[in-house]
């Protein structure tokens, strides 16, 4: 299992569209992907779960990936966060 900290950089935060984009990428992999904000951990393959975090700009999350393709998975997921989900 590997984990990495990411920061929300886009202005609108982790709202509906970014959440959908994140779930889409997470679901591509076999690994279990967990997203942690504070002590609230949710399954990153569940769109409702991801939106429950209501992560605002500047908040820090921990991405935790566990499975056979965890290295590729964490790279792709973190890239998505760093790019601000293609938003400003």
């Amino acid at each position: 299992m590997i984990e990495r900290e990411v920061k929300i950089v886009n202005r609108a935060g982790l709202h509906t569209r970014p959440a959908a984009a994140l779930v889409k990428i997470a679901s591509k992999f076999n690994s279990e992907v967990t997203l942690i904000k504070g002590d609230f951990a949710i399954n990153a393959k569940s769109i409702i779960g991801v939106m429950t975090l209501a992560a605002e700009k500047g908040s820090r999350l921990i991405v935790q990936v566990d499975g056979d393709d965890e290295n590729t998975a964490i790279d792709e997921i973190c890239k998505l966060f760093d790019s601000g989900f293609g938003e400003d």
Binding site: S46, I47, I48, M51, T52, A54
Partner: peptide, 8 residues
Amino acid sequence: SLVKHFME
């Protein structure tokens, strides 16, 4: 409180 009875 956010999700209530919404479902995907």
